[in-house]
């Protein structure tokens, strides 16, 4: 419940303050958001599976975000930033789909 409230509160803050994304973060923020989305869905799935662990979630959340941003940064340095971020998004998208499929099985039995 706290998590949902925090999510909503963060979104509300974002809407209220509407800050500009610093240019240095612009390539990484979308990837980080997708990675965090994957972590959140993984957490929900683990919760439904009954194997949710706080520490696990926190660490996986942070490391997912950092690793995704790092990969994109590395790709930018190597000159393949665009392709690499596409690859990261594809991988994270597949994971999100898998997690959502598991959540769906839990919720709808289908």
């Amino acid at each position: 419940m706290i998590a949902v409230i925090a999510l909503i509160a963060g979104a509300a803050l974002g809407i209220v303050f509407h800050p500009a994304v610093p240019p240095a973060l612009q390539p990484y923020l979308p990837i980080a958001v997708v990675a965090a989305l994957d972590a959140v869905f993984g957490g929900v799935r683990a919760k439904l599976d009954g194997i949710f662990d706080d520490k696990q979630f926190v660490i996986s959340f942070i490391s997912n975000v950092l690793v995704a941003a790092l990969i994109v940064y590395l790709g930018d340095q190597l000159g393949v930033g665009g392709q690499l971020s596409t690859g990261v998004v594809v991988v994270l998208g597949v994971r999100i789909f898998g997690n959502v499929a598991a959540i769906r099985r839990h919720l709808f039995r289908a």
Binding site: A3, A6, L7, I8, G10, A11, V33, A36, F61
Partner: peptide
């Protein structure tokens, strides 16, 4: 999660 929602919206 608050940070996540914030960045998502931003």
């Amino acid at each position: 999660l608050a940070v996540f929602g914030f960045t998502l919206v931003v």
